[in-house]
Each structure stands twice: as structure tokens, then as C-alpha cells.
Nucleic acid binder design. Structure first.
Lengths: 203, 203
DNA sequence: GTGGTTATTCAACGCCTGTAGAATTCAACA
DNA sequence: TGTTGAATTCTACAGGCGTTGAATAACCAC
């Protein structure tokens, strides 16, 4: 407190691109190795920087993880847009969008999040609150019944698909073109979004 | 070679229950923390034993993991039995069986396998070959088309469900009774087992 | 120039890890 | 009883980890 608002001397912060380079390296490390497997030292080397600089910018490993893994889009918004366009086809739209996002490696943070959520409680909380929670409120605002259960089931299928295709690398899932995977998975998603969860078929 | 078959002096091996205690502790540790998170020292403490004894019995951490995480049942056999009994209902049978297996904590090794497969390549290989591969050959011997893709899709939904309910702990999935989850997920599984993967509905 | 502020590095601490080898206890047989 | 071989423990190494505090270098304002 009492930090005078006019102090304008000294080197200005944020002028260099180093911070972004660290975040980039961290995203890659967390995506490839998960929270525990990624090391601050390796991230620093990848960014061409001293490990202590990472601490200087982000404080500690957990904070770095939180900032690096922030998802680059709102899954809830994706679902809302898909429902607004064509409710009967929302499953396919959502599946297409996620596969696109995962295949474009500029947005690999979701994979790192999933990979870390499995072993690290703080990452699991980010998935729960940031991703599934958002979808749940989006469904609720559409007036759907049991939005929490539906959002969870959707996450179930999408996370499973991501793990199979990108992490465990099950060959058929790796080889299949996107549209084929979409066709395979869309009906299940459609059912979770707007179908009757107690009966076999129907919407 | 040339180990004389009559040497019968000295303490006999395998007489104590210590080895089993170590395996039990290892299963619990790997299940709770994954491969990297679990430590030999913690496993030794939990088993009431010196860390070096763990090495003495199992050689190294990876071998211990492989022996501790061997799945206690054959998923392929489960699917085959379900198909033999009632093909149109196999999805529900498989879902029921897996939820039962996961809820009975005497068989938590599958969870540890999933948890570790996400960060450890050797564990991922066990999932690929031991679990998904078995289901694939089971489907193939039933004459189903595209058994590899089907087995992978089944794994996708089951692994996603396990992660959501037992690892990330999405509340709706944790709270829901088993039969409700079975009803929610069975149609998707049924489609992956015997449905048309290119069209929306139908079997 | 000088002084203040930030970026960046250096060197090190304390802790935990998997693992190795020697030493010791213990049960089974001669 | 004495010998044998396995079960078990003790001690220790070498390396990696997250983190810290002090030091230097670059920048900006005066």
C-alpha cells in the first residue's frame, strides 16, 4: 500500500517476449508429460532461460500451470452456439469442434489439462469448474433437464475420445479421419445433450 | 544352467506373505497417485518393509508396476459372454460389469492402469495390448466389421466414464446409482458393439 | 551523468527419488 | 549343530526436484 501512482522510473515490465516463450514451453511440457512429469528446469531450458526466471515471473509451479493451461476457448459457448444453430445436430457440431481444436496444435492446452487432471487434484478442479461447470450452466439456461448429469456425460465421451486418440494413441482412432470419428461419436453426444437418458433411443 | 535339482537346503522361497503385502500396497499407491506419483519408499512403508526389499523382490519400479497392475479379469471374456447371452443387450451388460468391478475396491488395478496410462508410455501399452487388443480379437471372432475401431470406441466411453466418476469425480456421476449410469451409457456402448458406425441410429 | 526498477543469471540449499552392496536375521535341512 | 540360502535391513550414493537470495545487466526517467 502507499505505492505512489506516479512512480514512472526504472525499466518497464512486460516489454520482452520472454514471458510468452516460457508460457509456450510450459504448455508443451505440461501437455506432453502432465503436471508431475513436467519440470521447471526442463521448461526453462526449452525457453532458453534460467529456471529462476520462471519462478520470478510466476511464483511457483502451480501458478505457472494454472496460467499455461487456461483453455483458449469457452466450451459452454461452443455448445450454446451449436444449440442455437441446429439443436438436432448439436452432437456432431460439438464433436467436430473439439476434434478440430485438438488437431490444431496451437491449442494443446486442453490435452495438458486432461493429462494432468488424472493425477493432480488442482488440475481436476480446473476441469470440473472451468469446463464441465460451464457446460452445465449453458445447458441449464437452455431449460434442459438434469444439466449436471448431461454435462458430465458429455465430458465422459469427449475426454475418453481425447485420451484414446491423442494420449494412449489407439491406432484406429489415430488413423480415422475426423469426419468418421464425428459420425461414430455424434449420436452418443446428441443423446447426452438432448435425449432421454433413461430409455434406449429417442430425442 | 546345471542347477542341480536336488539342492534342498537353506530357507525355502515364497513362504512368507510379505511379497503379497508389497503388491497390495503397490496397487493402492499406483491407483491413488499414478506411476510417477507413487514412490517405492512410500510403498515400502505401507507394507511395513524396507525399500530395498521391494527391489529385491521385483528388480525395479517398472517391473513392480507391471506385476501389480495386471488386470484381474479378461475384458474380452466379459464381452464374449455378454454377446453369447443377449447380443441386443450387450451394452448394458458390459456397462454393468465394469461399474461393478470398479466399485468393488478389491479390483482397483484397472483404475491405476488408467491413471498411469495417461502419463506413462509403458502403462499405455498395457492398455492398448492387454485391454483394447483383447476386445478387438473377441469382436473379430464374432465376425463383426471393423473390430479395431469398435474396440477403441468402447474403450473411449468406458475410460471416460471411469475418469469422470472415479478420478476427476464429477459430482453427478459420483452420486448417480449404478443402474442409472448403465441406462445412460448403455446405448452408446451398444452402438459401438453392433450398431452402424456411419449412421445416426439403428443396430 | 545518477538513481531506480526490472530482467536475468549464478550458486546453492534441503529434500526426495530409484537404486546398489554389504551386513544381518531367520528358517530349513544335513 | 553347523551350513546354506533366502528374507530382510542398514547405509549410502548420485542425481533430480522446487525454490531461494544475492548478484549482475539492461532499461527508463530524471
Amino acid at each position: 500500500m502507499m505505492t505512489s501512482p506516479d512512480k514512472r522510473s526504472g525499466r518497464r515490465p512486460g516489454s520482452t517476449a520472454t514471458r510468452e516463450a516460457i508460457l509456450l514451453a510450459a504448455r508443451e511440457a505440461f501437455t506432453d508429460s502432465g503436471y508431475r512429469g513436467a519440470t521447471i528446469r526442463a521448461i526453462a531450458v526449452a525457453a532458453g532461460v534460467d529456471p529462476a526466471l520462471v519462478m520470478h515471473f510466476f511464483g511457483n509451479k502451480e501458478a505457472l500451470f494454472a496460467e499455461a493451461m487456461r483453455p483458449p476457448f469457452e466450451p459452454a459457448a461452443v455448445l450454446a452456439a451449436a444449440m442455437a444453430a441446429d439443436p438436432a445436430n448439436a452432437g456432431a457440431v460439438v464433436a467436430t469442434f473439439f476434434l478440430d481444436a485438438w488437431d490444431s496444435d496451437s491449442r494443446r492446452s486442453l490435452l495438458g489439462l486432461v493429462r494432468s487432471a488424472v493425477t493432480e487434484e488442482s488440475a481436476a478442479a480446473m476441469v470440473r469448474d472451468g469446463l464441465v461447470g460451464g457446460v452445465e450452466t449453458a445447458l441449464a439456461s437452455l431449460g434442459t433437464d438434469r444439466p449436471g448429469m448431461r454435462a458430465s456425460l458429455i465430458a465422459t465421451q469427449l475426454i475418453g475420445l481425447a485420451i484414446g486418440r491423442y494420449i494412449v494413441r489407439l491406432q484406429p482412432l489415430v488413423d480415422a479421419p475426423r469426419n468418421e470419428l464425428v459420425a461414430a461419436v455424434a449420436p452418443a453426444l446428441q443423446r447426452y445433450i438432448s435425449g432421454d437418458l433413461t430409455k434406449g433411443e429417442g430425442s
